[in-house]
């Protein structure tokens, strides 16, 4: 078990913290501790990101406990579990969106291209350019549709001139399946679109930077079934170009869009496996309880 954190002081402090908090959890939850070992294959033959011994605290609350998981290249991996199980927290760690939250502390190792995401040398701006994010509620900026998509390339300086920007915007909107609907209204405000369109606009905005990984945090929870179906279709198409990690409340959605599924329960990663296997033949009792609707 290696903690790839540069500063020794940090390491010591965080390790002590980790042991203490893990102890309290273990004490209060002694009976189940052994049952919480992850079952299934956490490794992926061609991983894009590898996470080892990840722990997250919000203040004193131990939100993620010793999670190990690979995220494979060009796969869609779904993270499911009951509310408060830590699936969103885990997702937000993958591009360090938790940095903005006061009192949030992350230990362990999350590797991408041989660099630890939480290591000292890692640049957040660079990381987020590689690992994009789509949020639960569509959050287009109060700007025109064009400017929404052009925002990322502009701040990162990805386009040399106006033609480049236009090309990026058009391609992104096409990939997000929104082009045909908005091509005549590019100067209209993005906030004027319908919910589903807004969410696809946010996806277009994310892929305009050409990230390698796209994180989606319950992207359809605020949408109606038709809009949801469109997004799901889109996710399937996007797999060709991107690695996608999606958190979802809906097991049907996980089953429809993902190749692999990870089940989280109260901060533990309980089971990982191919989506078919997890839904048809869960190995862990907790997973089975959740899938059969006994709780959650």
């Amino acid at each position: 078990m290696t903690f790839q954190i540069d500063s020794g002081i940090d390491l010591a402090g965080q390790e002590v913290g980790a042991v203490n908090s893990a102890d309290t959890v273990a004490k209060s939850d002694k009976v189940n501790r052994d049952d919480r070992k992850t079952v299934g294959e956490i490794n992926h033959p061609d991983p894009r990101m590898t996470c080892r011994d990840v722990n997250v605290w919000y203040g004193d609350k131990h939100a993620i406990i010793d999670v190990n998981l690979d995220i494979g290249k060009n796969e869609v991996i779904a993270m499911i579990g009951p509310s408060g199980c830590g699936k969103s927290t885990f997702l937000r760690c993958l591009n360090r969106m938790n940095d903005t939250i006061d009192g949030c502390r992350v230990t362990g190792e999350m590797m991408m291209d041989g660099n630890n995401i939480y290591g000292k040398g890692m640049d957040v701006v660079l990381l987020r350019a590689q690992v994009g994010m789509v949020f639960q509620k569509p959050n287009p900026f109060p700007k025109s549709i064009f400017e929404n998509v052009a925002y990322g390339p502009r701040i990162h300086g990805l386009a040399a001139n106006k033609t480049d920007i236009e090309e990026i915007v058009v391609t992104s909107l096409q990939r997000a399946g929104l082009w045909d609907e908005v091509k005549d209204y590019l100067e209209e405000p993005g906030t004027g679109l319908s919910g589903g369109q807004q969410q696809r606009l946010c996806i277009a905005r994310a892929i305009a930077v050409n990230p390698e990984v796209v994180l989606m945090d319950e992207p359809c929870s605020a949408l109606d079934p038709i809009a949801t179906a469109k997004i799901e279709e889109l996710i399937d198409e996007l797999r060709e170009h991107y690695t996608i990690a999606i958190v979802t409340h809906s097991m049907q959605q996980a089953a429809r869009v993902s190749q692999r599924t990870a089940y989280f329960h109260l901060g533990d990663l309980i089971e990982v496996g191919s989506t078919d296997q997890v839904f048809t033949n869960p190995k862990h009792q907790l997973t089975e309880d959740y899938i059969t609707g006994r709780f959650g």
């Binding site: 591009n95 969106m97 903005t100 957040v124 701006v125 660079l126 990381l127 987020r128 350019a129 994009g132 994010m133 949020f135 509620k137 959050n139 287009p140 900026f141 109060p142 925002y151 990322g152 701040i155 990162h156 946010c202 905005r205 994310a206 930077v209």
Partner: peptide, 15 residues
């Protein structure tokens, strides 16, 4: 201004 705007921008890698 909603926090979602900040998240959206920072999620794209804006400083």
């Amino acid at each position: 201004v909603p926090q979602a705007m900040r998240d959206g921008s920072e999620g794209l890698g804006a400083t």
